[in-house]
Simulated scan of single mutants.
Amino acid sequence: MDPFVGNWRLVDTQNYDNYMRELGVDFATRQVGNVTKPNTIIKLDGDNVILQTKSTYRNTEIIFQLDKPFNEHTSDNRDCKTVISLEGEKLVQIQKWDGKQTTLTREIKDDKLILTLVLNDVVSVRSYERESK
């Protein structure tokens, strides 16, 4: 988990509008989501992982333990059963709701945090750079 710990600033987004549309996010919210540049903060507190997303639009926080399912209320108002696992060098988050499933995979490549979001055949990639301390 240590490579993921830190403050990360969004620097690039690909196909995020289509991903949000596939989730069922309304037009107005997608417009805000397309221009918002959130920071992701990942911390460790004992066995707990704290994952925060902060932006001028909305802040979210989930606290979880690896491989233990939990209930997650997402920023787009979905109530999911979520599990997050460390699979090799990747942090894999699976959200399930209403018979649907999306996978969010975080990995470190070239000193960047790469978040790949997959729902059905829609793939979005968001890249983050580590904030200097």
Rank of each mutant, 00 (worst) to 15 (best):
P3S: 07
V5W: 10
N7G: 07
W8Q: 03
W8M: 03
T13N: 09
Y16V: 01
Y16F: 15
D17V: 05
D17H: 05
N18L: 11
E22A: 15
E22R: 14
L23D: 03
L23C: 11
A28H: 08
T29H: 01
R30L: 03
Q31A: 12
V35E: 02
K37Y: 00
N39A: 03
N39W: 12
N39V: 13
T40N: 09
I41A: 00
I41N: 04
K43D: 08
D45I: 05
G46Q: 06
N48T: 04
V49M: 08
T53E: 09
T53C: 01
K54I: 15
S55T: 02
S55Q: 00
T56F: 08
T60P: 01
E61C: 02
E61Q: 13
I62Q: 02
D67V: 07
K68R: 13
P69V: 01
F70G: 07
F70M: 05
E72R: 03
T74S: 03
S75R: 01
D76I: 14
N77A: 09
N77D: 15
R78C: 06
D79N: 15
K81C: 08
I84D: 02
S85H: 08
E87G: 07
G88N: 12
E89H: 10
L91G: 01
L91H: 04
V92C: 02
V92K: 05
I94M: 10
W97I: 13
D98E: 14
G99V: 13
T103W: 07
T105H: 03
D111I: 11
K112C: 14
L113H: 04
T116Q: 00
N120K: 15
V123H: 05
S124W: 05
S124T: 10
V125K: 13
E129R: 08
E131P: 01
S132W: 11
K133H: 13
